[in-house]
Design a protein around this nucleic acid. Structure first.
Length: 261
DNA sequence: AGAAAGCCTCGGCCGC
DNA sequence: TGCGGCCGAGGCTTTC
């Protein structure tokens, strides 16, 4: 579920533990997969005081008196603090909380608890995550940075949808946001990134920033204009034309046969 | 039964 | 022909 907008809401929630000191941290083997062991997480976090929060794309960062802590949410991860969710409802997977889906967390000296709730186990804890592998953050992407996203070194480049999903090029766009941006821009997701006309590039950048703003305001990546048409045989909510679908960039993609070209 | 909103690895292909 | 980088496919994991 979490794309950049959801992780940003988790970050704001995590602001509540700024100033608190970790008395205990724990993690199961899956959530600690990027570390040497679950106990490495417990050892690393003990005694750290949280000094601030930040985020790069879908990666949440807790700045501390020592190492930087990173949390990834996979597809079904949710951040909870004292049992309060960062965003209302769990829209993908089970819409409920189960104790056995709590994969790890931090307990603080003031009694607060920060928890990773993740049914599908694709979320991860990290220590001093490597930010050099992530592109610029999608929420604050400038036009100049966006033009870099579309710059292809060789050949005509991958499909624009695949390019938008490439976290090393721009960090934060997930499958739903990618489809929404292309839907609003009226661009066929299969178009090679290097083939876009300058007019298409402008439309894409406008749609990119507008999508971030409006879906952020609505409350999540799953509230896009095209969402109601994300199923086989659907019709475009804008013009009534047939929606098409295919796997692009490894993800199921839906687009309008008429206004996206 | 199959697909799912993320990420990682592997192998093939392309261009130099 | 050889090499490295790029890109797509598939796996992970569990759930509905």
């Amino acid at each position: 579920m979490p794309e950049i907008l959801e992780v940003e809401s988790y970050r704001r929630l995590a602001d509540r533990v700024v100033g608190s000191t970790v008395v205990r941290g724990w993690s199961d083997a899956y959530s600690a997969k990027k570390l040497t062991s679950p106990s490495a997480w417990a050892r690393a976090v003990k005694g750290l005081t949280v000094t601030g929060t930040s985020r790069r794309g879908k990666l949440l960062l807790l700045e501390t008196s020592g190492v930087t802590l990173g949390i990834r949410f996979g597809m079904t991860g949710v951040l909870l603090i004292d049992d309060e969710a960062g965003i209302d409802g769990l829209f993908y997977g089970p819409h409920l909380f189960k104790t056995e889906w709590v994969r790890g967390g931090l307990e603080f000296d003031d009694g607060r608890k920060l928890i990773l709730h993740d049914p599908r186990r694709l979320g991860r804890f990290e220590i001093d995550p490597d930010l050099s592998e992530l592109g610029p953050d999608a929420l604050s992407l400038t036009r100049k940075q966006f033009d870099q996203v579309l710059t292809i070194k060789r050949g005509e480049g991958p499909a624009i949808k695949a390019r938008l999903l490439d976290q090393s090029v721009v960090a934060g766009v997930g499958n739903l946001l990618g489809d929404e941006i292309l839907f609003r821009a009226g661009v066929d997701p299969r178009t090679p990134a290097g083939r876009l006309s300058s007019e298409q590039r402008s439309r894409l950048y406008k749609a990119f920033t507008a999508t971030m703003r409006s879906l952020g305001g609505r409350g999540g990546s799953h509230l896009g204009d095209h969402m109601e048409a994300r199923f086989p045989g659907a019709f475009c909510p804008m013009d009534g034309a047939t929606m098409l679908s295919a796997t692009i960039g490894g993800r199921t993609t839906y687009w309008c046969s008429k206004h996206q070209y």
